[in-house]
Structures are given as structure tokens and as C-alpha cells.
């Protein structure tokens, strides 16, 4: 028995989600007294930082595949090779395609979006958009877990992993990636991966006022987000929309200015570790979900916060 981590690459390096999956696999393997093995497709420098997460071996498939059906076949073959009962993958577009396919292929039970290690046969995940948690039992001998972004963290105290080449029959390509468009040209961390997020809503009154939001984000090294009406009316790009019908995020810090805190908005952000709310209305529902609040005008408060961050950094 060992634990397999399936790790996707971007520009020759493991993705953040891939490193989180490897860290989770390594910690779980350790709790079982066994080894964790990572599987990649493509090429990396050395062990690509995977050893540091606690993984002992990296199986390198040279093909650089992206097709979800090919990945499921590759993952199933690797699992068989190392005798894995548990497979761990990221809960992003990659894991949501490959994880369930692999579960079907190997007859495993799958629990998606886990937030903690399995314990006594149960694993925890968030349900009802973060309004409740479920402890789930897998009824099959094998399990596939996908790890919620930012829930588990990336370990860095491991060693160096050995790499070995691995090949398997993966079948034909049917999904062909033709191009990639970066969400932002200004080098911001993409929203689903961001640790720090500064977000604003209709209280900002118009797109011309977003400079104060961007300034604070830039000072903090944070990514900008917005409420749904703001992206619907075109004040901000669609990819910034967080909430029930937009992106779900889980940063360490979420600062919300001029957002009322409607339940559909909260559904996308209430798993943030620390929430700060800035609103002129002391009765705004968002304060109930916040850790820190400032009752005040965003047009005055945001620049003061930016100045304070810059003072701290200099």
C-alpha cells in the first residue's frame, strides 16, 4: 500500500494544486507508515520541488499529456505499479476531470474537495458552499481524494525525491489544447490561487474608482476580485466575479469594500481564513461573517490602508 499523488505541470513546473496534492499525499502516507509517490507527465528540472513536499519518488511520463481520458489510464497504471490504495489530486479543472475518471477506472470511491487528512476511515469536506462540513466514508477498497485549494498548504520540509521514467498505454488524444490566455497581464496571482484578495462591490459607485482598490491590492501583493453586479454591468472583468455563480476562493485574507454580503456572495468567500469588511452601513450583513470590520467610507479608508501597508513595507 502506498499513496499516489497526480501532479499537473505548467511551464515545466508542478502547479500550486499539484504541490498541495503531493503534500497531502505525503502527510497521509506518513500517517499510514508508508510512502508517497508522485506522477507527472512532461519534463521537470530535478524533482521539481516535489521531494520537499515529502514525496519519496516521482514517476515521470515523458508524453506531456493533457487529455483527461489518457491521464486516467496513466494514473490507473501508475497506481497499479506502486500498489496505491489512495490517489490524491488537485480540486481544479484538472482534478475535476481526471479524478472522477480514475475513480471509475479503478473502481474507487471519490471524495472531492477534502480539507483534512482521512482519519479513522472518514475524510472531511465542505458542503452547502461552506455552510456545513461532511465526514465521508469511502465504501470501496480504493479511494480518490481531491484537495481543496489553500486548505492544506504546501509542505517544504521533505527531502529530495528520486525520479524514474514511467510509461503506459494511454490511448488516443481527443482533447487538444490549442491556446492559453492569461487572465491578467499584470502578473497578479490568479484568483483561485491567491493568498490575499482585495474585493469591491457596488459601493465603489463606478469603474473609474477602482484605482484605490488596485492600489491596496498592489501594496499587499494581493489579487483583485468583485461582486457579481459589478462584473455584470461591466465595471470589472468577468473572471473577477466571486460567489455562488462565480469563482469560489479560500484565501488567507479577503478584504471586501462596498459589498453588502449577500448570501450568494458569501458562498464564494466564506471559507477565507480572515475576512475584513469595509462598509458605510453598520447593518450590512457582511459584518456578521467578518473577523475585522471598519464602518466607514471606502473612498477614505482604502487609501489609508494602502498608505499603512506601504509604511509597514518600507
Amino acid at each position: 500500500m502506498s499513496v499516489l499523488a497526480i501532479v499537473s505541470l505548467k511551464n515545466g513546473q508542478p502547479t500550486k494544486g499539484g504541490l498541495e496534492a503531493a503534500s497531502y499525499a505525503a502527510a497521509y502516507a506518513k500517517s499510514l507508515g508508508t510512502d508517497a509517490v508522485a506522477l507527472i507527465s512532461g519534463s521537470i528540472d530535478g524533482d521539481g520541488g516535489l521531494g520537499a513536499t515529502g514525496v519519496q519518488r516521482v514517476l515521470v511520463h515523458a508524453g506531456g499529456i493533457t487529455d483527461s481520458s489518457q491521464w486516467a489510464k496513466l494514473g490507473a497504471a501508475a497506481g497499479l505499479e506502486i500498489g496505491a490504495d489512495a490517489t490524491v489530486i488537485s480540486h481544479d479543472h484538472f482534478g475535476r476531470a481526471v479524478g472522477p475518471r480514475m475513480a471509475v477506472r479503478i473502481g474507487a470511491g471519490m471524495v472531492s474537495g477534502v480539507t483534512a487528512l482521512p482519519k479513522s476511515g472518514l475524510v472531511r469536506k465542505n458542503v452547502f458552499s461552506g455552510k456545513a462540513m461532511a465526514d465521508v466514508a469511502v465504501k470501496q477498497a480504493k479511494a480518490v481524494y481531491s484537495v481543496t485549494p489553500n486548505a492544506f498548504g504546501i509542505a517544504s520540509d521533505g527531502g529530495v525525491a528520486t525520479t524514474e521514467s514511467f510509461d503506459a498505454e494511454v490511448g488516443a488524444v481527443r482533447e487538444q489544447v490549442v491556446s492559453f490566455h492569461a487572465a491578467s497581464e499584470d502578473g497578479q496571482v490568479p484568483l483561485p490561487e491567491a493568498d490575499l484578495v482585495v474585493s469591491a462591490g457596488r459601493g465603489l459607485k463606478g469603474p473609474e474608482n477602482w484605482g484605490i482598490v488596485e492600489d491596496l491590492a498592489q501594496a499587499l501583493g494581493a489579487t483583485t476580485a468583485c461582486s457579481r453586479p459589478v462584473s455584470d454591468i461591466g465595471w470589472r472583468p468577468h473572471h473577477e466575479h466571486v460567489g455562488q455563480t462565480g469563482i469560489t476562493i479560500r484565501p488567507n485574507l479577503y478584504i471586501a469594500a462596498g459589498i453588502s454580503g449577500a448570501i450568494q456572495h458569501l458562498a464564494g468567500v466564506n471559507q477565507s481564513k480572515v475576512i475584513v469588511v469595509i462598509n458605510t452601513d453598520p447593518e450590512a450583513p457582511f459584518f456578521k461573517a467578518a473577523d475585522y470590520g471598519i464602518v466607514g467610507d471606502a473612498f477614505e479608508v482604502l487609501p489609508r490602508l494602502t498608505a499603512a501597508v506601504r509604511a509597514l513595507n518600507s
Binding site: A103, V111, A132, D135, V136, K288, Y292
Partner: peptide, 17 residues
């Protein structure tokens, strides 16, 4: 292939400072 054993509600959020 899986079964929810128990649902729990998150602990109430401490007061907002």
C-alpha cells in the same frame, strides 16, 4: 461508492472586531 457519516455546522464565527 461513498457515504456521508455525519454533517456538522462550522463553529459560530467569533464577534467581528
Amino acid at each position: 461508492a461513498t457515504e456521508v457519516q455525519e454533517f456538522t455546522l462550522p463553529p459560530p464565527k467569533g464577534a467581528c472586531k
